[in-house]
């Protein structure tokens, strides 16, 4: 008989194999999500049982809409996302195309990938010193006759610095992903297009871009998720430069993101209800944003053939 052997196995077997995953899923995933939602409907400080804390209904959610710091944090995430993803993917693609055009690829690939191997907190702390008043970046600016910049201590500049460092630290990985995508283009196809007289621009638009579309979508979706949850880099970059734990997301909330604000609301103010409401607000934002991206990739823009 051609029926797979699995049909002769006791139905307990597959569930036994699944047991560890199911137990941990129930404990650390399903229960926490339900519990977290319940918390978001209460005013809870974690020190008393949840059942003994005041029930607030949807007040934590509506409160978020009138909280200027939360709104500012959302705006910061939005800005980092809208500019960060195209910059990252764009520069990564330019580097990947350049890498494909030269002979000495391996050493350069290792070198450009280096920042992606460092932990984001450590990267953040490094840049605090690179950008300090007596640091090397300002030294370079001064040697070129330019004014020295406050960077992370300026509320007007700090978020832009964080955008730059995020791109700096992730562009190597984007490049590697796109190099892998470019390698999957059949050389014969490009040669045939050249014979037919297709220019570089047309070859790129009609052959290269459609082939690397999955890589582009992958980079867009993963970095969208990372940027909307951005915490480590900001913790590393804003805690010391502005002094003290409470100043994370500073100066004066200028680099506050949903994640850094949630950290403070939950684990410094012990306002668990509000923090949980923020987590679910973030979940909704992420779901919408991801859906929009997948739809955009599916119908518009890149689908040229």
């Amino acid at each position: 008989m051609s029926v797979p052997g699995s049909t002769r196995v006791s139905p307990w077997v597959p569930w036994t194999f699944l047991l560890p995953v199911l137990v941990f899923y129930a404990l650390f995933l399903v229960f926490p999500v339900a519990f977290s939602f319940d918390v978001s409907l209460h005013n809870w400080n974690m020190l008393t049982p949840l059942s003994a804390s005041p029930y607030t209904g949807g007040a934590q959610y509506t409160g978020l809409l009138t909280d200027p710091v939360f709104i500012a944090a959302l705006e910061h995430n939005l800005l980092l996302w809208i500019l960060g993803v195209p910059l990252l993917v764009g520069i990564g693609l330019i580097l990947a195309l350049a890498l494909e055009a030269v002979r000495t690829q391996t050493a350069l690939r290792y070198l450009l990938f280096l920042p992606a191997t460092l932990s984001p907190v450590a990267i953040g702390i490094c840049w605090v010193y690179l950008l300090s008043g007596v640091g090397p970046v300002n030294a370079v600016l001064q040697s070129m006759g330019l004014a020295s910049q406050p960077f992370l201590s300026s509320p007007g500049q700090a978020l832009w610095v964080i955008l730059g460092v995020y791109v700096w630290s992730t562009v190597g990985l984007a490049m590697l992903v796109l190099v892998a995508g470019l390698k999957s283009i059949p050389v014969s196809l490009l040669e045939a297009a050249t014979m037919d007289g297709a220019t570089g621009g047309r070859r790129f638009w009609h052959i290269t871009l459609p082939v690397i579309k999955p890589s582009l979508l992958f980079l867009t979706v993963t970095n969208t998720i990372a940027i909307w949850q951005l915490f480590d880099l900001i913790a590393g970059m804003t805690t010391a430069s502005t002094g003290g734990e409470g100043a994370m997301g500073g100066p004066i909330n200028a680099t506050q993101t949903v994640a850094t604000y949630m950290y403070q609301v939950a684990f410094q103010d012990l306002n668990m209800g509000k923090a949980s409401a923020m987590a679910f607000a973030l979940l909704i934002v992420l779901a919408v944003v991801t859906l929009v991206q997948v739809l955009l990739f599916r119908r518009g823009g890149l689908e040229v053939n």
Binding site: F28, F31, S36, M46, A279, L283
Partner: peptide, 13 residues
């Protein structure tokens, strides 16, 4: 699911 949904309940658990 974003990780932030889990931190508060798991800490408490």
């Amino acid at each position: 699911l974003p990780n932030f949904v889990f931190y508060v309940p798991i800490y408490y658990m």
